[in-house]
Amino acid sequence: MIRVQYFARYREALGLDGEQLRDSGEFTTVDQLRLFLLARGGVWDVLGEQNLMCARNQELCSLDEPLEEGDEVAFFPTVTGG
């Protein structure tokens, strides 16, 4: 399983703060997971935004970050703290 979380504007657009996805080996990178979600269409188009940020196991990462069974992935818009 891969645990996916959504934050801020994405969470609102999707009406969902997270989900568990069964991984049968197709999600080898964060980007493959993102493309799978994007293919759901409609509100999921937000995951196609250019300034999307992502984290793997609570560390910022790039889209080509490799994924492993049991990982936790988060997608969110550009951070705006401070």
């Binding site: 934050f7 951070v79 705006t80």
Partner: peptide, 9 residues
């Protein structure tokens, strides 16, 4: 912090 810490206003 502004560009890497996960906060959203």
């Amino acid at each position: 912090l502004k560009t890497r810490a996960p906060f959203w206003k």
